[in-house]
Design a binder for these strands. Structure first.
Lengths: 199, 199
DNA sequence: CTTACTTTATGATTAAGATCATAAAATGAA
DNA sequence: TTCATTTTATGATCTTAATCATAAAGTAAG
């Protein structure tokens, strides 16, 4: 995350997106750096039959879609607002200039990319070799780790993802997620209180 | 890839690994930067039943296992020599110093990470939503793109991967890969000449 | 408050890829 | 040049998650 003041000074503008609006499409050339100010954005792919895969969900303060700014390729996925959102948008050249002038920001992005690579490496291995319950626990733990601040009562984390989103993050079907979650509850791996999952 | 002379000057040593030897294990702390001098190294995971997933295969000149050097996490996968190999090994602190003193190298690594993220994003989406034949073509095209030099006769690329490796790269079983490849040949998407795949 | 939509839920059936079994080539080491 | 291992191959069967069908709760908008 880049300091919003710094972003504005560098020439970023704050854009509004309604729920469901698309910020960019797969295969498009990357022209901007994006950072969520308010709301939530997901990056996703659809196959021919319309089955969705969610690459990631980005909440307040998170940036997304930077990789194609660093190398010569197009977006591997679409970006879509999950709820009404405000997103900072900074042109590519200004973003790269900002990095050049602030090595500490460049460093932070390098480690952000590294961490995201770590997550992807884990998920691709999970999806290709592990069974539904295992995959779901991985995703839950990932979101727990990423959304638990130190001040949060860490006894149990409330999962703010729908069953459908869990399905699209793990490559499963929503019915399979619902059934797996129930089994996980029976096994004591998580708890469900009026339909909300806690881990 | 870092120039081998530069690597040696920075304090790297060249280590020999026999086929099957492990360079590091999943969950270990990263202590070195690695770069293949001769041979081939794969990074992989095994699940409880021993099913393998290959994260990547690294040939001459390629580096691997850098992400954990840039952020605070352990290796997401093992590294193992596929054939007898020579690998440059540079201690983490010396690697980071090298990056600091050579911003152009740091830049190159940022784009390497970005590109690898692109590949992972594509593969995880493929594996979770696409069918076997589609996945296999993706992998073949990726290896073709990465291993075709401009001087290569680019009419058709000879795939130097076994059916088993293709299976472990796509999350499929070897029998499924064999059958899918035959179907792809019938459809004219690739050709097979005495058991070797050309794309 | 009603209507439309989303989310969660559950049972029945199906299909695709995994698994199992077996073997012939090909490769490589002794 | 023999033996062990790896790789490719093919048919039969099985299993698991997908698919299909249906509906109740919950949420949001007008």
């Amino acid at each position: 995350m880049i300091n919003p003041k710094k972003l504005r000074d560098a020439g970023a503008i704050l854009k509004n997106y309604k729920r469901g609006e698309v910020l960019f499409y797969e295969d498009a050339i990357a022209r901007y750096y994006y950072q969520v100010d308010q709301g939530e954005v997901k990056m996703n792919n659809y196959n021919q039959e319309g089955k969705e895969y969610i690459q990631g969900i980005f909440a307040k303060g998170k940036s997304f879609g930077e990789p194609p700014l660093f190398a010569d390729f197009t977006y591997p996925a679409n970006a879509e607002a999950i709820i009404d959102s405000k997103v900072w948008q900074l042109p590519k050249d200004k973003f790269l200039k900002l990095l050049e002038e602030n090595p500490e920001i460049h460093h932070k992005f390098t480690s952000t990319l590294a961490l995201r690579l770590y997550y992807k490496a884990i998920m691709v291995s999970e999806i290709s070799t592990q069974e539904p319950e295992h995959r779901i626990l991985r995703i839950l733990d990932y979101f727990k780790k990423n959304n638990t601040t130190d001040k949060t009562d860490s006894l149990s984390y409330k999962v703010e993802l729908t069953r459908q989103q869990l399905a699209d993050l793990t490559g499963l079907r929503v019915e399979t997620v619902i059934r797996s979650i129930k089994k996980l509850e029976q096994k004591g791996e998580l708890s469900i209180k009026n339909r909300k999952v806690y881990r």
